[in-house]
């Protein structure tokens, strides 16, 4: 009896709280209706263009038929996923995606840090500004143009082949060589983004206390020693956080660029999950919407777990996270 009474009283207090909450919400709505009015459109946008596709993703578990609609199409459970896992492409696509991202992560990570450390010791302001302006610039060139430049440079008659022919290597089709694809992708990306990537490290370096440097100079420390013992420890937290967070998005290859760099000869090493989804779902003469959506969902689900995990880890390591 006693416990029931307790529960009832607890229940009433809860309803009271929720009534009160609703009351304050109504009051807020009345006082700040203009804010809510403003917010309507963005909210509608997010719901329609972000959440409706999430609902649409259930076609991954169905056999989607455009005439029946998303809800009307018959459920097939995990058939599409099983089909993908047992398919010939599964291993290849997954391997390419992981290798490409890991290669990109490992090769691309040190360069912005080195550039930031180097720029930090340029005492001539003008030269520093100039160097920053030049190195940031390629970031703003479109992916189509970047790929265009790569294709022109590496074409059998392009400048790179001409340099190779000086060394007696003639007529190699560099873009058609599967073993070179990943390097071309990664190094051109480093070329394009090293400058922009260093901005965040430069910001972290300005956070290093000048008094540490002054003390070190008085003690006779060389610049190299100062970089090693002051600057690098100073930017280490930023570095670790960025590294962990990048690990979280490991399945996100630069899909648009990969797609443009692909050709039938290098496909064995350039087909990644995203390009595969695009081909199965949109390019194929008979688009397999459900199958493609299942592959996409497979990727999004793994990516989700990875990001959550990376964020947890980041919070544990540096008390810092995305949210």
């Amino acid at each position: 009896m006693g416990t029931t009474k307790l529960q009832t009283s607890k229940l009433t207090s809860q309803t009271k709280v929720s009534v009160k909450k609703r009351f304050t919400f109504m009051k807020a709505l009345k006082n700040h209706w203009q804010l809510y009015l403003l917010f309507c459109l963005p909210l509608l946008y997010v719901i329609v263009f972000k959440y409706v596709p999430m609902y649409g993703a259930i076609i991954a578990f169905k056999n989607f038929d455009p005439t029946l609609g998303i809800w009307g199409s018959p459920w097939v459970g995990l058939d599409n996923f099983i089909k993908f896992i047992h398919s010939y492409e599964f291993g290849r696509v997954l391997k390419n995606t992981l290798l490409l991202s890991l290669y990109h992560l490992i090769a691309g990570f040190p360069f912005p840090i080195i550039l930031a450390l180097s720029l930090n010791y340029v005492y001539r302001k003008r030269f520093k500004k100039f160097a920053q302006m030049i190195t940031y610039a390629p970031h703003f060139i479109s992916v189509v143009v970047i790929v265009g430049i790569i294709l022109l440079f590496l074409s059998p008659r392009g400048p790179f082949s001409q340099v190779l022919s000086l060394f007696g290597v003639h007529n190699v089709d560099i873009m058609g060589e599967p073993s070179l694809f990943k390097s071309i992708y990664v190094w051109s990306d480093i070329w394009q983004n090293v400058g922009f990537g260093c901005i965040i490290y430069l910001a972290a370096l300005t956070g290093v206390s000048p008094s540490l440097h002054e003390a070190a100079i008085i003690d006779g420390a060389s610049i190299l020693k100062r970089i090693w013992h002051i600057d690098i420890p100073g930017i280490l937290p930023t570095t670790i956080i960025l590294l962990i967070l990048n690990m979280g998005s490991i399945l996100d290859t630069g899909f648009q660029k990969v797609l443009l760099l692909q050709n039938s000869l290098n496909l064995s090493s350039s087909e990644v999950i995203d390009t595969f989804v695009y081909k199965v779902g949109l390019v194929a003469p008979i688009p397999q919407y459900s199958y493609a959506a299942a592959i996409g969902f497979f990727k999004a689900a793994i990516a989700f777990v990875l990001i959550i995990g990376a964020n947890r880890l980041a919070r544990k390591v540096g008390q810092e996270s995305l949210w």
Partner: peptide
């Protein structure tokens, strides 16, 4: 609540095909 609703879309999305169909 709205922030949660917004930020969630940054870490999970419906994918290419459902967006195209929409």
């Amino acid at each position: 609540l709205f922030m949660l609703l917004f930020v969630f879309t940054m870490i999970f999305n419906g994918g290419l095909i459902p967006t195209y169909l929409l």
